[in-house]
Every structure is written in structure tokens, then in C-alpha cells.
Computed example of a mutant assay.
Amino acid sequence: MKKIDCTGLQCPTPVSKVKKYFDSIGEGEAIVLLDNEIANGNVTRYAMSHGYHVESREKDSVYEVVIEKRGCLEILEEEKKVSILISSDKLGEGNDKVGDTLMMRYIDVISEEEKLPTALIFLNSGVRLVCEGSKVIEGIKLLEEKRVKIYCSATCLKDYKLDDKLLIGKRVDMTEIVEIMNSAENLIKL
């Protein structure tokens, strides 16, 4: 049985490691070692959502999650058009450093997901994320390579004096932004 040691790792890294392993095999088992309840819950939910058999137990302050991928139930869901409106270059409120880190991790995680959004729409200070100097530009480029449409407010680019700094995405006006938002079945605002 494969052992995946995720002790000392913060989410989403344990889920990413488990996903990478199970994506690389047809069938098999792994025991995942975790040292915090949040990671245990996230890994367990991930495995269950993919139809894997899961058993979790705590032993000496370490969670052992046994995951088995055999003849898994295929979970079929209808694909929905999801657009994400990103109106800030930081995720959350408060500490700027934490907000930067959270946004970097968010972009990294969604770029690795199987279910991708249809579009990312950048407004307000969010336009900084698709311009020169962006710490997340590689993740956004990866999303575009995976056919996620990237849109950027022309008005916001002009207002933030970034007209000539745009690296990725299509400049759009408010009419186009409203059309994109209205065509989405689900709209997520960050």
C-alpha cells in the first residue's frame, strides 16, 4: 500500500498530493498521514467525492486516512457554466500579505482542478493580476491554456494606468462584462 506522508503540510497541499497519486493510477490503495483535523476533513471529502472508499482514524495525534480506488462509482454531474468575478488583487480583507498569499494559493488550486470555470473576469484592483508584476500570472496562463476565457475591464486598466502592462486576457467594456455574467449559470465573486 502506498504511503503518502502529508504531516506538517497545510491545505491544499495534502489534497493536491492525494489527487496527483490517484490520478496516476487506475486502481489501488494509499494510506495518507495527516497531522491536523482540517487536512483530514479535506482529504476525506475529496476522496469521497470521487467515489473512493475511505476510512479515517486518529492514532497518536496523527490521522490515518486509508483510501481505496477500485471499481469506483463514477460521479456524473452536469457541467455548469461558472464564471468568477475577481474584483481585488488580494483574497479576503485585512492583512495584505495574507491576502496576497491566499490569492496565489487560490489561483494555483483552481488551475489544477478538473472542473474549471468558464471565465475569469478581472475588475477594479483585480486587473493587477493579469498585468506585468503579477505573482499569479503563470497560474492564469495555465488556466487560459486549459480554455478558461480571461477578461479584463478596459476601464479599470485605464484607471490603474495599466493599459500597456496587460499580459493576458481580452480587454472588455461593461456591456461585454454584463453579457458574460448573464451567460453564466453560476457567478462567483471574489
Results as ranks from 00 to 15, higher is better:
Lys2Ser: 00
Cys6Trp: 00
Cys6Thr: 04
Thr7Ser: 00
Gly8Cys: 07
Leu9Gln: 09
Cys11Ile: 14
Pro12Asp: 11
Thr13Asn: 13
Ser16Gln: 15
Lys20Glu: 15
Ile25Cys: 07
Ile25Met: 00
Leu34Cys: 01
Ala39Arg: 06
Asn40His: 06
Gly41His: 04
Tyr46Met: 10
Tyr52Asp: 00
Glu58Trp: 02
Lys59Pro: 00
Lys59Ile: 11
Val62Trp: 03
Val62Met: 01
Val65Pro: 07
Glu68Ala: 11
Gly71Tyr: 06
Leu76Ala: 05
Ser83Lys: 10
Leu85His: 11
Leu91Ser: 01
Glu93Val: 09
Asn95Lys: 08
Lys97Ser: 11
Lys97Gln: 12
Asp100His: 12
Met103Asp: 03
Met104Asp: 11
Tyr106Trp: 13
Ile110Asn: 06
Ser111Val: 05
Thr118His: 09
Ile121Cys: 07
Asn124Arg: 12
Asn124Tyr: 08
Val130Gln: 02
Val136Asn: 03
Val136Ser: 08
Glu138Leu: 08
Glu138Tyr: 02
Gly139Lys: 07
Leu142His: 02
Glu145Ser: 10
Arg147Gln: 14
Val148Asp: 01
Ser153Leu: 00
Thr155Arg: 12
Cys156Gln: 05
Lys158Asp: 15
Asp164Ala: 15
Arg171Pro: 03
Thr175Arg: 13
Thr175Lys: 15
Ile180Leu: 11
Ile180Ala: 05
Ala184Glu: 06
Glu185His: 03
Glu185Phe: 01
Lys189Phe: 03
